[in-house]
Write a protein that binds this DNA or RNA. Sequence first.
DNA 1: CTCAGTGCAAAGGATTTGCATGCCG
DNA 2: CGGCATGCAAATCCTTTGCACTGAG
Lengths: 149, 149
Amino acid sequence: MAPVTPNNVDDEVARLLRQGEQRYTTGRRRLVAILRGGGPMTINQILAADRRLPQSSVYRNLTILEQVGAVTRIVTRDDFARYELTEHLTEHHHHLICSTCGDVADFSLDARVETSLDRALHKAAEQAGFSIDTHRLDLIGTCPSCDDA
Amino acid sequence: MAPVTPNNVDDEVARLLRQGEQRYTTGRRRLVAILRGGGPMTINQILAADRRLPQSSVYRNLTILEQVGAVTRIVTRDDFARYELTEHLTEHHHHLICSTCGDVADFSLDARVETSLDRALHKAAEQAGFSIDTHRLDLIGTCPSCDDA
DNA sequence: CTCAGTGCAAAGGATTTGCATGCCG
DNA sequence: CGGCATGCAAATCCTTTGCACTGAG
């Protein structure tokens, strides 16, 4: 499945919401607009990015968007959950998590490595009687700006 | 570095604590004893496993043990953090996370896959100017017991 | 019109912290 | 002995929820 190009992210989110019998309201459009801006964001970053969005609605709408598969919730070591558009709307990727400042950046893996990894994962899961939905691969380390300190 | 065999886990934890200028007290010994019992555990599971341990001390000691590198904190999608002995004390492994019941199991990857993955990860991190401490690879799916339901 | 979505404020719940006491080194 | 660890209870803070109002379809 080809990733969605920037211009039809909105259409795709609309479709996902409709499919989940949910509306694509103004608040949800604003939320998606912010998330399109960059990588994974915390609630506070989202609130700061658009002051018109009240906290509770942001939480509620992110939950909805996650349920219909438009948004992914990322949990790191710190106390702040982060959100980003799902891979349906971007591309399969992984995360670089800075253990100092807690920030998260995206990165991709060489296609060949990704494929062999995927095969190995399915094999391993099968042995455990586990059915896989997705995998999550994060690098824990220090980001360039924290490395200087 | 060869993984520590079961019998000297205690010694190794003691060493890590000493190195971090921390004491290996009774409470911490009990904690480690419980964690040696099985895979990743939630605070509640730990408290249930040994009623002599008060909640706040468990939190505090797990934090200490994590700081000296004896314990790893695992964050899943649910609201309960989980803890297990670090790979210094066990072996490098990954997690199978059940998105239904939230439970976590350990599994390992074929050595060859692991190696090529590691190489690819270091390369990717280097490009981003990121210095890696460790990586985290989790499978999100459904465990055998939840699959039946 | 009708019902889902919204916004405010208050509640919930895992985790943290203050402080007096006990134990390790 | 002296200071760190402990345990209890209260506080913290991200997240969720109740309720009355507004807007989408």
